[in-house]
């Protein structure tokens, strides 16, 4: 993995500032809209088969009246040491040269081993053929494959946007700019509080690289489930709570 990382030209990643997240769900619906995610019906929630490539988790802390709720957006962490990759028997999930953990739909045979092995529960299985009333199909994004039944899917960092911007830049002889909204995933563009930042960690001048550099050295930065060594490409910035002084870190 380390060798691959050396030769990579880009390393897409995200920084999520938990101090700003309000839990408003704008990212969740933006993702649904961009990526042709099937409508999560009531039964899907009840069977715990709802698909949300990005979700906002809510953790309770304390008892009434000293009660806090903490919000945290969770999506595919695009691990450099991804536990989902080695278990795929058909090589449908792999790490590409731009640091993305990629799911190839046409290769997937639906063993669901990867979802089992994902510590972040960021992979979702299509238990049903996706269904929309005909008129709603007009909205579907033609740049994204509609996944059929039996296929595993997950956050792609909106790779269709990356591809589009890269192709345009190449055709017009330009470079891909950091912070280009056409490049950013739908969730990043939606966020009202600018909780989410997207960019290339390999580019030392990118916003995310600077934030990662600053925050992971004595700052607020951490990786989710750092201890299992997945080496993720999503950096979380700790929530600030000055009342948390007594206990350095509160289990949420």
């Amino acid at each position: 993995m380390a060798e691959l990382k050396q030769t990579q030209q880009r390393q897409w990643g995200m920084v999520i500032d938990l101090d700003k997240c309000t839990g408003c769900q704008a990212c969740v619906v933006a993702c649904q809209s961009e990526n042709n995610i099937p409508i999560n019906e009531e039964a899907h929630y009840n069977q715990r088969r709802a698909i949300q490539w990005i979700r906002v988790e809510r953790y309770w802390e304390g008892e009434f009246p000293d009660i806090k709720a903490r919000f945290m957006p969770v999506l595919c962490q695009h691990c450099d040491n991804a536990p989902c990759e080695p278990v795929c028997p058909v090589y449908a999930t792999y790490h590409n040269t731009e640091g993305l953990n990629v799911q190839v739909y046409n290769r997937c045979v639906g063993t669901r081993f990867c979802a089992n092995n994902c510590p972040y529960h960021a992979r979702f299985f299509n238990f049903w053929e996706p269904a929309w009333p005909n008129s709603l199909k007009n909205q579907l994004n033609p740049d994204v494959t509609v996944r059929s039944r039996g296929i595993m899917e997950k956050c792609t960092f909106c790779v269709q946007r990356i591809a589009r911007v890269k192709r345009k830049a190449k055709n017009e002889g330009e470079t891909v700019n950091d912070g280009d909204r056409a490049l950013s995933p739908a969730c990043v563009n939606a966020c009202p509080t600018e909780t989410l930042f997207f960019g290339d960690f390999k580019d030392p001048n990118s916003t995310v690289a600077k934030m990662k550099d600053k925050e992971t050295h004595g700052g607020r930065g951490y990786h989710l489930l750092e201890e299992i060594g997945t080496d993720t490409n999503v950096v979380y910035l700790k929530k600030v709570d000055k009342h948390a002084e007594a206990k350095e870190e509160v289990h949420a």
Partner: peptide, 8 residues
């Protein structure tokens, strides 16, 4: 020849 060149 990366898969995501064509498949996404």
């Amino acid at each position: 020849t990366d898969c995501v060149t064509c498949h996404y």
